[in-house]
Design a binder for these strands. Sequence first.
DNA 1: CGCATATTCAACCATTTGGTTGACGATTAT
DNA 2: ATAATCGTCAACCAAATGGTTGAATATGCG
Lengths: 107, 107
Amino acid sequence: MSHPLDTTFAALADPTRRAILSMLLEDDMAVTDVAEPFEMSLAAVSKHLGILTKAGLISQEKRGRVKWCKLEPDALKGASVWMQGFGQFEELDMDAFERFLETELEG
Amino acid sequence: MSHPLDTTFAALADPTRRAILSMLLEDDMAVTDVAEPFEMSLAAVSKHLGILTKAGLISQEKRGRVKWCKLEPDALKGASVWMQGFGQFEELDMDAFERFLETELEG
DNA sequence: CGCATATTCAACCATTTGGTTGACGATTAT
DNA sequence: ATAATCGTCAACCAAATGGTTGAATATGCG
């Protein structure tokens, strides 16, 4: 199995998926409405939503025959923390940082 | 051609490449030394370094027969700004990072 | 019921990805 | 000059990715 950060960053590496996340910033949306602006099949968008769901970046809840997609921004936290390892060093405990480096090397 | 964020996030989606970036936090390294901890061929690591270079996350400079790899954390800025749009995550403080490199590590 | 809507599934396809190996050019050491 | 070291290149491979289409599954509506 792969590291959670693999899944998060891979999910974010696709422009369609990033656009979907941006759309969901405004409001929850049905799958069909998410798909509407894209020039690809509904099935393709459905796959993208599946990848975002697996990454935890969105959740999907079916009400009636409509499946609603909801942004889950907390799932970005892991990636954000990892990236902050490259930026916010004054607030960083160095021992914790060493441990972080080692886990990353093993992972 | 693809969006810069595609390249950045795709580069970060691989555990070997994230580990390399973490290693380069400590110091610049030769390709051979970067490759040493990994259980894969030197050519494979060289490919990873090429991907990181294309993403701008590292730079490579050849001195003699040794090619030195250097972290370029500014390349994370675009991704950081994009993620910042999703809420509570603070933007990378690049100035703090520069100061850290000079005072904490080099000292 | 019968039909339209919402969404996924399954099979398929082309391209990309992450790895291998062996040969190669460039540089340094003996 | 010869040999060793550093790193990339080229060809190849298996698996994953991002897309397609057509059938299938629910659900809601008249």
